[in-house]
Amino acid sequence: MSFLVYLLAMALTTYLIRMIPFTVFRGKIKSRFLQDFLYYIPYAVLSAMTFPAIFYATENTAASIVGCMVALLLAFFEKSLLTASICACAAAFLVIWLG
């Protein structure tokens, strides 16, 4: 099958998944339960995506754990997204490089 057919199927599916709910839902949701649910959802999604995947983000588990600890620590002290991200990568790099 040609690459372009695959590309079209892939891009269109992904676009529709994003576009339909974003376009259809208008106005404020009235239900308190749904409001609260949607309030918690971003954090729950990010947490589920990060754990345990972050421990396998590099092939060196020790490096991944060290990077994760650095990110947690900097996040706790409310450093910027960029700082946390760069320092975690740098720490993991050092562990891989020294190990």
């Binding site: 954090y43 990010l46 947490s47 972050i54 994760c68 996040a75 760069i86 975690a88 891989i96």
Partner: peptide, 16 residues
């Protein structure tokens, strides 16, 4: 390899 941590660290910095 190490750059694989970039986005996960950002997620942590968003949720903590």
């Amino acid at each position: 390899e190490a750059l694989g941590l970039a986005l996960y660290s950002m997620f942590i910095a968003i949720i903590v």
